[in-house]
């Protein structure tokens, strides 16, 4: 069953449509990759799913219509969005960033337990707790953004190009953590990526966008395994 679904989703900035009727299905517990060239509409799709841009069409979460809800309401339903640029609260400490992640969780004990669990994934967080998050390295900020999103106990987490600007080794580590989160905690993941190879290796399903439309979609193994498809849609 689809946990998150878009039907004929259009999105616009100002006057012009940027998404032209996207259909997307994210199965409960799966990892879905959104691929495509620069400007193909990956970021806009994630924004359209979380109310960050004007849309028409349907967005269903748990079979409930959520299109038109503002981002803060979508977040409260359990959809975490790690936006382009990571959304780091730069002048806040690492601890404050994490605590803002748990903003919607009223039960302090649960947040504490959550924090303990995350420290297992990102042990370095402990020593950097009192540092301004803006001073972390790019990779650390990306990990912090993921940790912060997990603090809100999301059912699905949307990540916008987590690999951007990071060394391959760091990307590898982050993707491993994402896989663990998906397998062990059952968090559904939607990941927009330029790094198609890495994303296909991680994801169950992939959608390739071209100028605001789904050009092709299917099991990521099929895409990764078919050289012709790969060459024509992903350019590698």
């Amino acid at each position: 069953m689809a946990l998150l679904e878009a039907r004929k989703l259009y999105a616009r900035y100002g006057e012009s449509d940027v998404l032209h009727g996207i259909d997307l299905e994210v199965a409960q517990g799966s990892i879905v990759a959104l691929l495509g060239a620069n400007g193909s509409g990956k970021t806009t799709t994630l924004r359209a799913l979380t109310g960050g841009v004007r849309t028409s069409g349907n967005v269903l979460f748990d079979d409930r219509e959520i299109a038109g809800l503002p981002p803060e309401a979508v977040a409260r339903l359990g959809i975490a969005h790690v936006p382009e640029g990571r959304g780091t609260l730069g002048s806040f400490t690492v601890r404050e960033n994490l605590s803002m992640g748990a903003y919607t969780i009223k039960d302090g004990k649960r947040s504490k337990a959550r924090y303990e669990k995350l420290v297992g994934y990102f042990p370095w967080l402990v020593d950097r707790r009192e540092q301004p998050a803006g001073l972390l390295s790019g990779g650390e900020q990306q990990m912090l953004a993921i940790a912060r999103a997990l603090m809100m106990e999301p059912r699905v987490i949307l990540l916008d190009e987590p690999s951007l600007g990071l060394a391959p080794i760091i990307v590898k580590r982050i993707f491993e953590i994402l896989r663990t989160i998906n397998r062990e905690d059952g968090v559904t993941i939607v990941i927009a990526e330029q790094d198609a190879a890495a994303a296909l290796a991680l994801a169950d399903t992939a959608y390739v966008l071209e100028v605001g439309r789904v050009a092709i979609s299917g099991p990521s193994a099929d895409l990764a395994g078919n050289e012709q498809l790969r060459k024509s849609y992903l350019g590698y």
């Binding site: 979380t50 960050g52 503002p70 981002p71 803060e72 977040a75 409260r76 975490a80 969005h81 936006p83 959304g87 780091t88 609260l89 730069g90 002048s91 806040f92 404050e96 605590s99 803002m100 992640g101 903003y103 919607t104 912060r148 809100m152």
Partner: peptide
């Protein structure tokens, strides 16, 4: 306080705060 933190976050980083569920 968490509310105080959220007020600061909303003032300085409105977009990032909204995706965390803050009613800016």
């Amino acid at each position: 306080t968490k509310l105080g933190l959220a007020m600061r976050a909303a003032a300085l980083y409105p977009e990032s705060s909204r995706v965390l569920g803050v009613r800016v």
